[in-house]
Write a protein that binds this DNA or RNA. Structure first.
Lengths: 332, 332
DNA sequence: CGGGAAATTGGCAGCGCTGCCAAAAATAAC
DNA sequence: GTTATTTTTGGCAGCGCTGCCAATTTCCCG
């Protein structure tokens, strides 16, 4: 099945070829400890000549120190996680760390299984989305002794490090913005909230804010599937079929909102005069449509970068709020 | 810097606790070799009690066999690679393989460096985008003895395994389609082609087909940056400022095409009567806009899945064409 | 030119596990 | 009940590297 390693030039062979000891080769290659200039040259020449590639598996085992960082993310289709991964991987690469990942499909059970599989690689850190984990996952992570970073959420208690922003605050501000603009008959279009708990948090604080203002949510349409432009379009269509007098719709995220926007475009519904649209995430594409999308821009790449930096620096446990930015746009 | 492993329950401790030998524990856990039912129970009980997590680093080293698969991809922002990764990681997870990745930013030099870093983990396979690698990368990969999978391209010679589709054929068919529809004054909008060599291949065969039909490309606008909706919009605007009499524009991909579509929408340019738009990739969002985008749908997830399957099965070297599908859409 | 401090260097145990082999136990055959 | 098989088991070397320590060489200063 799996491949046998080949081309196995070992450090011993390099040492032999260079006429030095193994540990000297190791020191030179890691640029750690002291060695003379000519030793360095001889070692590098031997490395070059033999095409030696250090074996990080062996190195990791020997040093009981790891430069692997494990990502356990809900989805790769969702640009949010791709962005986080991108930010993090850039920083990790600079620091010679290696990213490994697996995808949970928003399934907490799968998250537990995958987290366990990840820990078997003895990573320096495990990065996960949000705070909602099974007891088993939490226990395992705590016991692992490796750093744990929870991303993109701050509404809850962190296991170790948390980097992100408050989804509750985002929901609240979104509602406040729509209310300020004078919208009163507000609806909601969302995707599977049991799985995407961060979207659920936004929604619940959105509703609370509307309630407090005496303009409670008028109608909602929640599709079972994942968020997508197509689902946003479909869901808005359904929502409008039931609730004809809405003046604004809050979407679970920009993908869904774009779908809603396109629905309006196709149906000749004037935005925002006839219907206002508000999203979440601040995707680039939202700025390229004819009317820039009103939304909240989240610092996804920065979240990944900072998470990686904290891990590299072995920072103490902490929760960092990177905030978000409300973009007024032209659709609300 | 990096974290010291903790919680280091070793197989020896489990063996001790279960009152069996180390190798017996190993056999039970890997379900490999023979052992009795009650031995199995005792081992599992001890594992449970101690919270033992096998150390795959040590296992990999000892067996000189790896279940790591390394991805060296140009970008994570580009949904194309995220899709491939998604397809591949699903299959890999099923087979208890672990995906590791790094991002080259379309830089061949960085690709070489990252490929080298990857090989240090002694992966079972390295997966890369396309055929364009530096000599150093190719040499290194060939010498590594691990499987090499080149993805998303078939126009060239594979190092080992290739899975994808022909970008040249895609360019050709796109041109043929536009010609068949009667467009004769065709322009092109693209992004950095030196980096995205697959887009470059599409473009050159597109042009060849137009030439052969006696309707050569009228104008082109190529932006230096990466592809994005915003850049597509901007580039089309620039192109139309120079070439006022185009009847169709071929875009380097759907992102760019969507930007062009939005530009037309905002400018009141009728699609496709006044200007036709044709993309590449077949993104979902292209079907959700008011007029479905005319494009070519590529089997990205399937590419990832098949690539992973071939690696898991340790299949012989081969190049597999997964083809693509031309979607007529409503924009051309 | 000698003595001591500092810079280099090599040897080797051991990281935690797997693979091999021989020993022990269970089972079958007679 | 005994011997031949087969199944189960444990011991231990060794995967390739790093960390520690002691040995060696070099450098400095009087």
């Amino acid at each position: 099945m799996e491949l046998k390693h080949q081309a196995t030039v070992t450090i011993a062979e390099v040492a032999e070829a260079a006429g030095v000891g193994e540990s000297t080769v190791s020191r030179v290659l890691r640029n750690h400890g002291s060695f003379s200039g000519k030793t360095r040259e001889r070692v590098m020449a031997a490395v070059e000549r033999l095409g030696y590639v250090p074996n990080r598996i062996a190195g990791t085992l020997a040093s009981t120190t790891s430069r692997l960082v494990a990502f356990v993310i809900p989805s790769l289709s969702n640009i949010v996680f791709a962005d986080v991964l991108r930010g993090a991987s850039a920083v990790l690469e600079e620091n010679r760390y290696q990213a490994v990942f697996s995808v949970t499909d928003y399934d907490p059970g799968k998250e537990e299984a995958l987290a366990a599989a990840m820990l078997a690689w003895r990573p320096a850190a495990v990065m996960l989305a949000g705070y909602e984990h099974t007891d088993g996952t939490a226990k395992m992570l705590r016991a692992s002794g490796c750093r744990v970073v929870e991303l993109l959420d701050l509404d809850g208690d962190a296991l170790d490090i948390a980097v992100g922003f408050s989804n509750r605050a985002a929901g609240r501000e979104s509602a406040a913005f729509l209310l300020k603009r004078g919208y009163r008959r507000i609806g909601y279009v969302g995707h599977d909230l049991k799985r995407d708990t961060r979207a659920g948090k936004r929604f619940s604080s959105f509703c609370e804010t509307l309630d407090a203002a005496g303009a409670p949510l008028v109608a909602q349409e929640i599709l079972a599937g994942p968020s997508s432009v197509e689902n946003g379009r479909l869901a808005l269509e359904r929502l409008l079929a039931r609730a004809t007098d809405l003046d604004a719709v809050y979407f679970s995220n920009d993908d869904m909102a774009l779908g809603g926007y396109f629905h309006c475009l196709a149906q000749g519904i004037a935005i925002p005069s006839q219907l206002a649209i508000f999203g979440y995430n601040g995707l680039d594409i939202g700025r390229a449509i004819p009317q820039p999308l009103s939304t909240i821009r989240t610092p996804r790449v920065a979240t990944g970068e900072l998470a990686a930096q904290l891990v590299v620096a072995n920072a103490p446990p902490q929760a960092i709020d990177l905030g978000f930015e409300l973009i007024e746009g032209a659709t609300a």
